[in-house]
Structure formats: C-alpha cells, structure tokens
Write a protein that binds this DNA or RNA. Structure first.
Length: 468
RNA sequence: GCUCCCAUCGUCUAGCGGUCUAGGACGUCGCCCUCUCACGGCGAAAACCGGGGUUCGAGUCCCCGUGGGAGCGCCA
C-alpha cells in the first residue's frame, strides 16, 4: 500500500515552528517512501479561522519548499460529506442525540471535579427515546463502555487506554456543524491516509478517533506522535521565541535550508551528522527514529546553521534571497557592485541575510551618517593627513584592484610607522560609515574608485568641520 | 483531581546489556591566526533525575518515587 501522509493545520494562527516541523516530518515520511503528502486546512472553527492565516500557512510551506501532492483541501467545503457520515452513525446506532443543555453539562462537570473525578459526559441521553421539542440536540458518538483501545504508536510504542476513560464526545453541534474529532476521522478515511504524524498533544484524541474509525468500519492508519517543541527556557513555546510565523524567520534573514536543517534535527538524528540537504533528509529519515522527549528551541544553533548555509550554498542561490532582503531595505542593487561579489566578500561575516543586507547597504547607497563612536575615534585631526595622502595615491592608481590598493595602504602605514590597522580603520569608517566591513582592500575595490574618492573627500570635510 | 506521555552535558543529540574512564554539535571559556567584524585551527570545562530490582554485568530492561508536559469544550 502506498504511503499517504497529511499535514492538517487549523488556520487560526500562523504557521509556527512546531507546525512547520510536523509538516516537515510528514513530508519526509511521504517522500522517503515515495508516497503522497496531502495538505488539509482544518477550518471548521468559523469563528477563529481566517484567510490571512491560510495564506501564511501556504506561503510558509512554499518558502520552506514543502510541496504537497494533493490539496489544499478545506474542511468547510466538505460539510455535506460530514453530515452524511453523521447520519450513517446515527442510523447504525453508533451515535445518538443529546438534549443536555450547556448549563446542565457544566454542572455535571463541576460535580465530578468536586468528587476528584475526571470530568466527562456520563451518557445520560444515551438511551433516551423521547425527543423534546424546541431544544436542538447535539450528536454524540456512542463510545464503547468496555475494553481497551490499543495504539501502536510508531514513536511511543504501545499505548493503552481503557474505554471507561473515554466519554461520548460530541460529533455534531446543535447547529449541525461537525466537530474536530469527526472531521479528522472522516477526512483521514476518505483521503486514505496511511500514517497520521502529528504533535503528541493529540495522543489523547487518538483512542476516540480509533473508536469512530472502527464504528465506520474504516481501516486504521498508523500513528506517530511527535514530541512538542519548547521555547528557549524549556517551557511552553511563547510567541516571541518561536511560536511566530516561519515567515518571520524568513524576514529575519534565515535561509529555508537552515530552518529545515534545524527542524529536522529537533527530535531526530542520524548518527553524529549535523548538516543535511533535503535529499539527505529524505534518504535517511525514518519516523521510528524520532525521539519521544520534547525539545527546546535554540536560536544560537539555528543561526549557526544559517551561517553555515550562507557560507556554503552557491552564490547565485544566496543572491536570490539577498536581493529580496536588500529590496526590503529599499536598496537598488543596480547602483553598485555585482551582488555575487558582495556575497563572496560578506558571506563569512554574516549570521543572517538581513544582517548581510544591512552591512552591505553602504556599497549601494550613500553614507547617511557615520557611526558616532567610530567617527569620534577614527575621523579626527591626526588621521586627516593620512586620508589626504591615501586619496591622492588612490587617485593616481593605474589599476583599481585589491592588490594595488593593499600595496598603497601598506606603504602608507609603513611610511608613518603605523600598524596596518591604524590606517585601515579610518579608511573603513570613511568609506563604509562604520568599523565593520570585509577586508579593506576588497571593500575599496568593490566600492570603486569614484565612490572611494568621493567618500574620502567627504570624510576629510567632516573632520575639518567638526574641528570648528 | 483523573488519564496519558516524557526524563543523557546549559541546549540539540549519539548510545538500541559488556566496545561508556559516556561520543558529536551549538553555546561558553582559553590559546593561535588577524586591518575591523568574522572565518578558520587547537584545547578545556560541562550530562546518564533519585531509589529499588533483573543480570556475571545497566545510561541501556522492569517497578516505585520525583520532576516536567499534554488532555479532560457544542476549540482544533
């Protein structure tokens, strides 16, 4: 039987890091087995679902490169089918109408809690034969009252639930709309899902879903419940430390390759290997190797991976992403050096593409203001003659190359009995606006003679005017 | 409260009864390289939650405890 997995987010928020990993594992499992990966949007909660969230999910998946073979399917478009199944369940006696009011149910739960019991529906409408007028009933699934449900989880192993722990859950609301546990079951059945890979917060839903599946006479999928992801502090994921949209990771300047690599290593490993290309992930991934314990997010490692990919991915590939980030900063890359050359010069000193874009802005646009501290230290009276001298020498250079530039800087430093840094730093501040840039000779070469001379002139002017 | 899940360095993890004086990675701390920031190189500190079993032998299996987490909605 061919493997079929699905990712079934509810569009009530953005695609966060935990959801992204669930999607990734489903995708990997399907790809590894040459099966199909289905995307299903669980939007039955009309109140909380939004089209923006749907878009964020779709966009996030696209950015990560998690392509699906079928879907996106929307549950709101399948209400007729759910109604049909609910009827079927009613007909076969696997479901019944419940006329209990919300207040009544709340009172019941209250009493159970007071007795130290687990709150659950006691089945008081189970055998009811009268049909009160007025009240619209909900439909409940008639859960078996004896025996056990055994889940053979691919990650956790055997998990056993007593049916007495389960109650008769609502499968249709009073307004006739289906609830989660019903729609999941119907969809997984109809879409012939063979492997349900989801967060382990769903473990407790599994026996209920299995019972419904059995009542429907449907084959049972295999289950794999992946551990949760916690925030940096080891506690529940909060918005600011990763629950944010994966699109925010994109905006932050991360490469999808890095995010994917980071996510796959959260709860899964292949010996001591740290770096995985998508192809390698697909080749080595086995859902059974996934860990059982929750793992905490570690931004440092994510950034390290990002830097790794910035350093090693083909320059043209980085260029596509960097251009996008420069664009966001309002920078037109036609006004300066070739982007690929910037990347070669910058890739070893950037943790994020956004940082790289910011640090490369001076190649394309004028320096709006010198870094204050840097100017105070390097653009001072003592350095003015130095800059003057360099400017004159640069102006006469027969060839504008890093080698020639380096020679000039070197000899200037020697002539004044200075270490290279004493000359390089003022130059750097004058030409880049700050104290950080690629090696000075390369920076100058990339900038071009015209801009360098102009900026030296501006710097000299700056020194003079700040002395008044 | 009840049910279920989980437990190796700060973090991600290797380990699937002997090869563990517990390996790798991020981070941290030294040293080297160096025109800035970085990259890189070398090195160091750092963990089997506790207690009982099983076994010739336990990080690895079982039980209990402790500590985390999830679920218990006419949310998904």
């Amino acid at each position: 039987m061919t493997v079929r997995t699905r990712f079934a987010p509810s569009p009530t928020g953005y695609l966060h890091i935990g959801g992204a990993r669930t999607a990734l594992f489903n995708w990997l499992h399907a790809r590894h087995h040459g099966g199909a990966f289905v995307l299903r949007i669980e939007d039955t909660d009309l109140e909380r679902s939004t089209p923006e969230a749907v878009n964020a999910i779709l966009e996030g998946m696209a950015w990560l490169g998690l392509d699906y073979d079928e879907g996106p399917f929307y549950q709101t478009q399948r209400f007729d089918r759910y109604r049909e199944v609910i009827h079927q369940l009613l007909e076969s006696g696997h479901a019944y109408r419940c006329y209990c009011s919300k207040e009544e149910l709340e009172a019941m739960r209250e009493a159970q809690r007071a007795r130290g019991e687990k709150p659950r529906y006691d089945g008081r409408c189970r055998e009811r034969t009268d049909f009160p007028q007025g009240e619209e009933p909900v439909i409940r699934f008639r859960n078996p009252r004896e025996g056990q449900v055994v889940v053979e989880d691919l990650i956790h192993g055997r998990i056993v639930f007593d049916n007495t722990e389960l109650d008769d859950l609502i499968i249709a609301r009073a307004d006739g709309t289906p609830t989660y546990n019903l729609t999941v079951v119907v969809d997984d059945m109809d879409m012939k899902i063979t492997h349900v890979i989801r967060g382990d917060d769903h473990i407790n839903n599994t026996p209920r879903q299995i019972n419904i599946l059995k009542a429907l006479g449907a084959p049972l999928p295999k289950y794999a419940h992946v551990p949760m992801i916690h925030g940096e502090n080891g506690r529940k994921l909060s918005k600011r430390e990763g629950a944010a949209s994966v699109l925010e990771y994109r905006d932050m300047g991360l490469l999808p390759e890095a995010v994917l690599n980071y996510l796959v290593r959260l709860g899964w490993s292949h010996g001591d290997q740290e770096i995985f290309s998508p192809d390698e992930m697909i080749r080595y991934f086995d859902i059974q190797d996934v860990n059982k314990a929750a793992s905490a997010l570690n931004q440092q490692k994510l950034l390290w991976l990002n830097q790794h990919y910035i350093k090693t991915l083909p320059v043209e590939h980085i260029a596509r992403h960097l251009r996008w980030h420069l664009g966001r900063l309002g920078i037109d890359t036609n006004t300066g050096p070739e982007l690929e050359r910037i990347i070669e010069a910058q890739r070893e000193r950037a943790k994020t593409l956004r940082g790289m874009a910011e640090n490369s802005a001076f190649f394309y646009q004028e320096i709006s203001a010198y870094d204050e501290k840097a100017a105070r230290k390097h653009l001072v009276a003592e350095t003015e003659p130095l800059l003057n001298e360099l400017k004159a020498a640069f102006g006469k250079l027969p060839e504008w190359s890093a080698e020639r530039l380096h020679a000039v800087i070197q000899s200037t430093a020697e002539k004044h009995g200075l270490k290279l840094g004493k000359v390089a730093q003022p130059l750097r501040v004058a030409c880049s606006g700050g104290t950080v840039s690629p090696p000075i000779d390369i920076t100058l070469e990339l900038l071009g003679r015209e801009k360098v001379l102009k900026r030296l002139e501006d710097a000299i002017e700056f020194i003079r005017s700040s002395q008044l």
